[in-house]
Design a protein around this nucleic acid. Structure first.
Length: 491
RNA sequence: GGCGCAUUCGUCUAGUGGUUAGGACACCGCCCUCUCAAGGCGGAAACAGGGGUUCGACUCCCCUAUGCGCUACCA
């Protein structure tokens, strides 16, 4: 049978990197085995559903390069892929359970349930639905149950967990997991608003959508035995389970916004490459070899093995993501980078520049930044003349003869042809040697004048990209406007 | 509290009874150098603790500790 897996988020907010990793592992597993990767929206909680969340999830996954074979946005033979559109199916299946005695009606109000829990807390016992003291099919006479239902009294359907037995399943990543049914709650399956809970909807959908492997977060381990019970009650073949280790904040707490950005969208907005983010999260909890860090999506697909997924939770380390992104920044083709830089340039309010120029700028600066848009701040002088100068830096290299040298150098540079780093370098070197000074004595002031900064790429390379006329213009205007101010300050 | 899952350098990890416990990020040092990076070379850095099993445990079993998860008419 062909592998079919699903990513089944509930649309309660933006897709975060934990969700991205779950989706990714499902995707990798499906593609590795030539199976199907399905998106299913689990919107059974009306209260928590947020508008736009589905769109965000789909958009982010698509940005990351994960394409679905079936889902609400692409259709498929087992739809609809949104749970709120499958209510009738869940109702029918709940009925099946009811008829088989695997489930029962309960009529307790929220207040009654709260009192029950309070009693249990006071008695020091684990909070758990007490089938025999509450108002349900077990305690109420049959005709009373019928009457309540006929009256339309608020009712839920609960799972009738067997009283004394053991429930176990095999997890691909963790091996055998066994729990006592005594520790399982009579979970609500169908809520009084007619919506199913996760447990019912999930099992029913996985069955009817022919899901073969359930790959999801570790937080689902405790409810899996209930799902096992449901499969048994329905008489359905069980999928295989694989529970992924959690992703954690640096302080080992569950991943959250408090510790910085966790939404995939945040990373995109900051200019991380999808390739880098995918590569990064793929290696959080799984490693194909350990002697290599950089993998393309097809390479990940080729080597992915669920059996090799780790059991322990992983802390998200931004520094490593930064390193990885910087690696991609250095190896991605310049044509693409130039194209991607354009929107950032526009956003920052800079004029349009030819792609060819952007490529040269990126080639010059990319190994000095970690994210593409940083080119705009690190190398702002490539797009506009410097407005602020690092005066401290110039002061360090100041000498009385400097103004004169600069004037002479201006004339010297005018005759440099072609204006390439090599020729510029030769001329500047011989210029400064003739005056018995070191190269740094002139390069640093020059850098300050042309870029406004103390750091940057090689000076001569920078000048070449900037172009002769721009260099001369900046040098000239510095001598005319800034230098007198500086000299006044120095005296 | 109950139940469950987990535990190799600060972090991500390799390792499946015999290794000088390997790699990567971050950190430190040196080299290169017009600055900053990048790059090269080197350094520091780990098997949670205790019992077993075994000729031999990071590897297998048990206990403890710690962390995390679940304990809803949320997923």
């Amino acid at each position: 049978m062909s592998v079919r897996v699903r990513f089944a988020p509930s649309p309660t907010g933006f897709l975060h990197i934990g969700g991205l990793r779950t989706a990714l592992y499902n995707y990798l597993f499906a593609r590795h085995h030539g199976g199907q990767f399905i998106l299913r929206i689990e919107d059974t909680d009306q209260e928590r559903t947020v508008p736009g969340a589905v769109e965000n999830i789909i958009e982010m996954l698509s940005w990351a390069g994960l394409e679905f074979d079936e889902g609400p946005h692409v259709g498929g033979p087992y739809g609809p892929y949104v749970q709120s559109q499958r209510l009738e199916l869940y109702r029918q299946q709940a009925q099946v359970l009811l008829e088989r005695g695997a489930a029962y009606y309960a009529f307790d109000t929220p207040e009654e349930l709260e009192r029950m829990r309070a009693r249990q807390r006071a008695a020091g016992v684990a909070p758990k639905y007490d089938r025999f003291s509450m108002r349900n099919s077990f305690t109420l006479p049959e005709d009373e149950v019928r009457r309540l239902l006929a009256e339309g009294a608020p009712a839920v359907v609960r799972l009738a967990v067997p009283l004394d037995r053991t429930v176990s399943f095999t997890d691909i990543i963790r091996g055998a997991i066994t729990v006592s049914a005594r520790d399982l709650d009579d979970q609500v399956l169908l809520k009084s608003d007619g919506f199913p809970t996760y447990h019912l909807a999930n099992v029913v959908d996985d069955h009817f959508m022919r899901i073969t492997h359930v790959i999801r977060g570790e937080e689902w381990i405790p409810s899996t035995p209930k799902h096992v019970l449901l499969y048994e009650a329905f008489g359905w073949e069980m999928p295989q389970f694989a529970h992924l280790p959690l992703l954690l904040n640096p302080d080992r707490s569950k991943l959250s916004k408090r510790h910085g950005d966790v939404a995939v969208e945040d990373f995109r907005r900051q200019g991380y490459f999808p390739e880098a983010l995918v590569n990064f999260v793929a290696l959080l909890g799984w490693n194909p070899t350990a002697d290599r860090e950089l993998f393309s999506l097809p390479e990940l697909v080729a080597s992915f093995e669920l059996e090799r997924v780790n059991r322990a939770a992983a802390i998200v380390d931004r520094a490593k993501l930064d390193w990885m992104n910087a690696q991609y920044l250095r190896m991605l083709p310049l044509e693409r980078l130039a194209r991607e830089l354009q929107p950032w340039l526009r956003e920052a309010g800079y004029p349009e520049y030819p792609l060819e120029y952007l490529q040269r700028v990126i080639a010059l600066l990319r190994e000095r930044v970690t994210r593409l848009p940083e080119i705009l701040t690190f190398g702002d002088y490539m797009f506009a003349p410097p407005r602020h100068y690092d005066w401290e830096y110039l002061r360090k290299y100041w000498r009385p003869e400097l103004p004169e040298w600069l004037r002479q150098l201006l004339g010297e540079l005018e005759s440099v042809e072609p204006f390439t780093a090599e020729i510029i370098g030769q001329r500047v070197r011989s210029f400064i040697e003739a005056r018995g000074a070191t190269l740094r004595a002139i390069v640093h002031p020059l850098r300050l004048i042309l870029t406004g900064k103390s750091v940057g790429a090689g000076m001569f390379e920078t000048m070449e990209v900037l172009g002769k006329s721009e260099c001369l213009r900046r040098l000239h205007s510095f001598l005319e406007e800034q230098l007198p101010v500086l000299q006044a300050q120095l005296e």
